[in-house]
Simulated assay, not measured.
Amino acid sequence: MYLGIDTSNYRTSVAAFDCDNGTYQNYGRILDVPAGKLGLRQSEALFQHTLHLHEQISKLPAGIGREVLAVCVSTRPRAIEGSYMPCFLAGESVARSVARLLGVPLYTVSHQQGHLAAAAHGAGRDDLLGQEFLAWHLSGGTTELLYVAPDASGLPRANIIGGTTDISAGQLIDRAGVLLGLEFPAGAALEQLAASGERGKPFPVRVKDCFFSFSGMQNKVEQMHQNSYTSGEIANFVIETVAQAVQRATEQALERHPCPVLCAGGVMSNASIRQQMANRFGAYFACPDLSGDNAVGVAMLAAQQNGECLWRVPESILSHN
């Protein structure tokens, strides 16, 4: 059994992963955002993680620590120098204490690496983590198209090759939702609204070398709201615009990197975006439980780093590393 902890910007998460059968126990709690607000300051997120992490850990079976062989925690957004957010300190502090008390190894990864591992597992494709693939990470704070390949230890190493140059898809969706009177985060509620609106022509987002901007789209949404478009029409317009931009960027990326496409992040749980990506590119998706922030991928990476070899890294990649 391996323990994973993730205290990202909007969810407190803990998971236990059983590498013998690939099953997991996953518990998380979305951080409280006041009505009408578009997010939290890092000090507020850190406080809430500190307050609630023990509650999530207490949901694991009593005595499970006797079975834990290693602990892993996300300590930064991305696995690059200078990537830092204070909210991860809450999880790191607890993880270091737990590993010390249990007398087991402690491993650290990035939030993004955990996302990638969880998404592959949730799609039933752990084997992707042993090869090259493209990955979309669409969440409340991230809209990145990644080229991913494993390092010598099997950890996913990601390079950004596309995505947004300003606000993320999740930010656009949340801002549109709050404008329409929905609670933050607004993704699920906006998807329901879109079902009641007619599908119109999406905003012509310019996509060049896999990158695009959503700032003009936000201005358009505000204009539509002022011009008395229905909530359903606006919701549909936002979702379809995101879907079209993502598809065009994927198409451009596949011309350079013809490999499988994996989709992760809360925005990718939208049914319309999923269907279009699946139909056009045969993309793989995490199950809903593992699409958003969670600690399952972090726990899986604990097992991989501890020598369990959940996925094989080819010799060609090992020699390159």
Rank of each mutant, 00 (worst) to 15 (best):
103 G>K: 07
97 S>V: 06
158 A>L: 08
9 N>I: 00
122 G>Y: 09
192 Q>G: 01
98 V>N: 04
254 L>T: 01
299 A>R: 14
152 A>T: 13
277 M>W: 04
200 G>H: 08
2 Y>I: 05
261 V>D: 05
231 S>N: 15
120 A>L: 08
1 M>S: 13
293 D>Q: 05
104 V>N: 10
46 L>Q: 13
54 H>L: 13
240 E>P: 02
281 F>I: 07
304 Q>G: 07
206 R>H: 12
33 V>Q: 06
72 C>P: 10
136 W>M: 05
319 S>C: 12
243 A>H: 04
284 Y>W: 11
311 W>A: 14
121 H>F: 02
293 D>K: 11
180 L>S: 05
232 G>M: 02
183 E>I: 00
316 S>G: 04
19 C>H: 15
99 A>G: 06
166 D>V: 04
142 T>F: 03
17 F>W: 13
181 G>K: 12
217 M>E: 11
8 S>E: 02
132 E>T: 14
272 S>N: 09
91 G>V: 04
245 A>G: 09
161 I>S: 06
250 T>R: 10
183 E>K: 14
135 A>M: 04
205 V>T: 13
144 E>P: 06
94 V>P: 01
126 D>G: 01
316 S>Q: 15
96 R>A: 12
37 K>C: 01
142 T>Q: 08
115 H>E: 06
180 L>V: 01
207 V>W: 09
233 E>M: 11
224 M>W: 08
7 T>A: 09
77 P>L: 00
147 Y>I: 03
8 S>R: 05
297 G>K: 14
257 H>F: 13
13 S>N: 14
321 N>T: 15
319 S>R: 15
70 A>I: 03
106 L>H: 11
17 F>E: 02
267 V>K: 10
206 R>M: 08
50 T>A: 12
285 F>C: 06
248 R>G: 01
193 L>N: 11
167 I>H: 11
22 G>Y: 03
264 A>E: 04
38 L>G: 03
302 A>T: 08
128 L>G: 02
8 S>G: 15
282 G>E: 04
103 G>E: 03
194 A>F: 07
204 P>N: 08
116 L>I: 15
61 P>N: 11
273 I>S: 04
131 Q>R: 15
94 V>W: 06
197 G>P: 13
190 L>T: 03
59 K>T: 05
41 R>S: 02
134 L>S: 07
157 R>T: 07
31 L>D: 09
11 R>K: 13
98 V>M: 12
106 L>E: 07
151 D>P: 06
197 G>H: 12
167 I>V: 13
23 T>C: 02
23 T>M: 02
235 A>Y: 07
74 S>Y: 08
255 E>L: 15
89 L>A: 14
212 F>N: 09
213 S>R: 08
231 S>G: 14
42 Q>I: 00
44 E>M: 00
259 C>S: 13
191 E>Q: 15
243 A>P: 02
7 T>D: 02
116 L>F: 08
296 V>P: 09
25 Q>F: 00
229 Y>D: 00
173 I>Q: 12
122 G>T: 10
320 H>F: 11
77 P>S: 07
39 G>C: 04
110 S>P: 07
288 P>V: 04
